[in-house]
Nucleic acid binder design. Structure first.
Lengths: 227, 227
DNA sequence: TAGATTGTTAATCGATTAACAATC
DNA sequence: TAGATTGTTAATCGATTAACAATC
């Protein structure tokens, strides 16, 4: 038995374009790998693990263990030879490196099945993202409670983005509605859009879109199974 | 206005480990990029687009246009100089290259909000994946209808996997239940597990796990916004 | 013909990894 | 001390991209 957290290295697709490559900025690859270590470390911490070796991290991420040590040693000597890395300490180190140590507020658009699933999961909460507002256009849904939030009409979007300092908008809406709501998010001042629809969104260059594509990931996995 | 389908190149994390690197096998990077082109092309086709240039594909994928042409020209001369690529023809060419031209049956575990969202979306259907069975352990959910399928008890898993030739299992269940169900999927003979929980699954080496990690993707996107 | 876009080359740059001394 | 695992070097390999002739 090995861990099957399949996955060879390098950065995810459909993420982020490097706009101003500053000297101190992490390369796309390093930032992607660090994020991924964080995911495993967060879960390992939940499971009560105190220490983890680069080899264990490699088993879960399928990033070469040498590369993991190399990535980390660029920022300090976080490990203990013969022992490994302290899980909790490494989590906060990586959060610091990624400058995402704080809380970030997100707006959720769409109170359907997917929206409810996101609101009730702690998949975002675990990484410091808080859903501070849920929106829908359906009058039947507006006013109902999802998670422990009242669903609001999208008319209130702009106000909430300002008041709550929302930087991220999550689109959990049907494909045909996605572009219109993306436009509203952009107008409201949101800088990162997480797109769960299939729509190919068009946004201004200063806004980043990440499109979730489970089927594409599956196609990719399937290729390596079939060959 | 440019398309904000943010995203620099290379292969996704947490996907597939290269077990038997055969000569004819695509490299991880190429397979990942081809999958990604397919996503954009599929959507472009839906929108009625007949032709697409490498530059347009680049706008949506943020893969360099030279690299796109290079990736494609490795398999044939699919484009027309001065015109671009025929969308429909390119879709079938890439499907052929990825050997995922056929239909593939998947089993969905979990009939909660996420399960319902997946069952009712065509995000998988668009790429040739068909949800042929939905399972849950909750007696209240077993027997109810989701999408247009009856929800079955997981006791029937092994039988269905055999009868329906199911290769992929999608875990849309709470984190604490994920490992147990992953074990059942493995025993039933499923080869690819798509994990929507946060659990770090342990599976035999011949099974591939893809863990969905939207929060990690967000952290990564946020880094480039913050810096 | 003129403009656009492919297919391909050649050069560069960065990622990857084996190996091993340092040290817990 | 003995075993384990880090931190780091040095060499390799593959990805990336600018440039441009070919050609639709």
């Amino acid at each position: 038995m090995t861990t099957g957290q399949a996955g060879q290295a390098t950065q995810p697709y459909g993420q982020v374009r490097e706009a101003t490559p500053a000297a101190e900025r992490l390369s796309l690859g390093v930032a992607a790998r660090l994020s991924r270590y964080l995911q495993v470390l967060t879960q390992a911490k939940k499971m009560g693990k105190e220490t983890i070796s680069s080899q264990e991290l490699s088993d879960y991420t399928h990033v070469n263990s040498t590369q993991i040590r190399r990535d980390l040693s660029g920022f300090g000597k976080f490990g203990k030879r013969g022992v490994g890395y302290n899980v909790e300490a490494l989590v906060s180190q990586i959060r610091k490196i990624l400058r995402t140590a704080g809380q970030h507020n997100i707006a959720l658009l769409g109170a359907g099945h997917l929206g409810k699933a996101i609101a009730s999961s702690d998949i975002f909460a675990d990484h410091g993202f808080r859903v501070v507002a849920i929106f829908d256009v359906d009058p039947e849904k507006v006013g109902s409670t999802v998670g422990n939030q009242a669903v609001r009409h999208t008319d209130e979007l702009r106000q909430l983005v300002q008041d709550e300092d929302i930087v991220v908008g999550v689109l959990a809406v049907p494909t045909h509605a996605a572009q219109g709501l993306a436009d509203e998010l952009v107008e409201a001042g949101v800088k990162i859009i997480f797109n769960y629809s299939e729509s190919l969104l068009v946004v201004p260059p200063e806004v980043t879109v990440h499109t979730s594509s489970p089927a594409v990931d599956l196609l990719y996995a399937l290729y390596f199974y079939l060959t």
